[in-house]
C-alpha cells in the first residue's frame, strides 16, 4: 500500500483527501462570500455618514469650520441625509471616529471587540468573554431543559390523542406571548419562592427552546412509514420498543434541525432574562448598560459577541449532527 503511486485510483481518497476537497470547495465559494461581506461593510460605512451627521457637523463647527445652517438649533430639525448633502466635507470628516456615534463604524466595533476579548484577562469584568460565559451557563442549562422537555412532550403527543389535542394548542399559545412580557414575571415569581441566580434565566431559555424541539420531534417521531410501523406490529413489539428502535432513530435528522433553532432561541432567552433583573453581568447586562450610557460601540460589540456565541453553538450542533448521522450510516 505504501508504494502506491498518487495517481492510482482512490490514492488520495481518505481523510486527508476529504479535507483537501473541503478546502477546494471553500476556495470556490470564497470569492462570492467575500464579495457579499465587502458589500455589507461598504453599506455599513456609507450609512454611518448620515447617521452621525449631526455630531460630525457640530464637531467641525467647534473646530472652526463654516457649516450650513450655522446654528445647532436650525440643524436639529434636519434629517441626516439633508445635513450630509449641505455639508459634505464636515459630515464625512469624523463620521467614523466619534466617541459616542449613533452608528459606530465597523472598525470601531472590531476594535472594541478586540479590546474587550483579547485585550482583557478573561476573569476581568471588562472582558466580553467573561460576560459571554455568564450568559452561556443559563443558555446551556435552559437548552438542556428545553430539549428534554420538548422531546418528552413530543413523545406524549405522538402516543396520546388526548395530549395531541390538548398540549399542542398551549405550546403554540405559549410562543405567541412576547418573552419580554413574561420574563420579568418568571423572575419575580421564582424569586418569591427563593429561587435566584442561574435557574430563572435557564427557565426563560427553556421556555423559548422547548417549542422548536417539540414541533420538530412530533414530525420526526411520525416520520416512519406505515409499513415500518406495521412491521413492528407483526413482531409484536411493545410501544416502548417501537419508540426506541424505530421512532427515535427515524426522528434524529429532525431533532438536529430543531436543536439548531432551539440553541439560538436559548441564547436569546438568557439575554432577555438578564434585562429585567438589572443584572450587572452577562451579554444582556452589557446591552443594558450600553444603552443607559449611550455607549453604542459597547452595544454593538455585545450584539456581535452574542452573534458569535450563537454561531459557535449552532456549529457545535452541526458537527455533532454530522458525526452522529454518519455513525448511523444516514449520510453517504
Amino acid at each position: 500500500m505504501t508504494d502506491m503511486p498518487l495517481s492510482a485510483p482512490g490514492a488520495a481518497i481518505g481523510r486527508s483527501g476529504r479535507v483537501a476537497l473541503a478546502i477546494r470547495g471553500l476556495r470556490h465559494q470564497g470569492g462570492p462570500i467575500l464579495a457579499v461581506v465587502a458589500v455589507l461593510l461598504a453599506l455599513w460605512y456609507l450609512a454611518c455618514i448620515p447617521m452621525n451627521a449631526q455630531q460630525s457637523v457640530l464637531l467641525a463647527e467647534r473646530a472652526g469650520a463654516v457649516v450650513t445652517p450655522a446654528t445647532a438649533a436650525e440643524r436639529r430639525d434636519m434629517g441626516g441625509l439633508a445635513l450630509t448633502f449641505a455639508n459634505p466635507g464636515p459630515a464625512t470628516s469624523s463620521a467614523f471616529a466619534q466617541d459616542r456615534p449613533r452608528l459606530p463604524a465597523p472598525h470601531q466595533v472590531a476594535v472594541e471587540l478586540w479590546n474587550t476579548t483579547i485585550g482583557q484577562s478573561i476573569t476581568s469584568k471588562r472582558s466580553l468573554v467573561w460576560h459571554a460565559g455568564v450568559t452561556l451557563a443559563p443558555t446551556l442549562l435552559g437548552f438542556l431543559i428545553g430539549s428534554v422537555l420538548g422531546t418528552l412532550l413530543a413523545i406524549g403527543i405522538v402516543h396520546s390523542r388526548v395530549m395531541d389535542l390538548s398540549v399542542m394548542p398551549w405550546a403554540i399559545a405559549s410562543q405567541t406571548i412576547p418573552i419580554l412580557a413574561i420574563a420579568p414575571m418568571i423572575i419575580v415569581v421564582l424569586n418569591s419562592i427563593g429561587i435566584q441566580g442561574l435557574l430563572p434565566k435557564a427557565i426563560i431559555s427553556a421556555y423559548l427552546s422547548f417549542f422548536p424541539v417539540t414541533v420538530g420531534m412530533v414530525k420526526g417521531l411520525r416520520a416512519p412509514a406505515p409499513s415500518d410501523l406495521d412491521l413492528m406490529r407483526t413482531w409484536n413489539a411493545s410501544g416502548l420498543r417501537t419508540l426506541v428502535s424505530l421512532r427515535l432513530p427515524a426522528s434524529l435528522p429532525y431533532l438536529f434541525a430543531s436543536l439548531k433553532v432551539a440553541v439560538a432561541a436559548s441564547l436569546v432567552g438568557a439575554i432577555v432574562g438578564e434585562l429585567p433583573t438589572g443584572a450587572t453581568a452577562g451579554l444582556g447586562a452589557r446591552l443594558l448598560a450600553g444603552s443607559y450610557y449611550g455607549q453604542t460601540v459597547q452595544i454593538w460589540s455585545a450584539l456581535f459577541g452574542a452573534a458569535i456565541v450563537a454561531a459557535g453553538l449552532v456549529a457545535v450542533i452541526a458537527l455533532t449532527q454530522r458525526a452522529v448521522l454518519s455513525r448511523m450510516g444516514l449520510t453517504r
Partner: peptide, 27 residues
C-alpha cells in the same frame, strides 16, 4: 408468521445484519 412488504422496509440506520437481528432482539 413472517411478513414481507412490497417495500423492503429495512431500517436505514441499521446494517443488513442488524436489521435481521432486530426482530430476534425483540423476541
Amino acid at each position: 408468521y413472517g411478513y414481507v412488504f412490497q417495500a423492503a422496509g429495512l431500517y436505514p440506520w441499521r446494517t443488513i445484519g442488524k436489521n435481521i437481528t432486530l426482530p430476534l432482539e425483540i423476541m
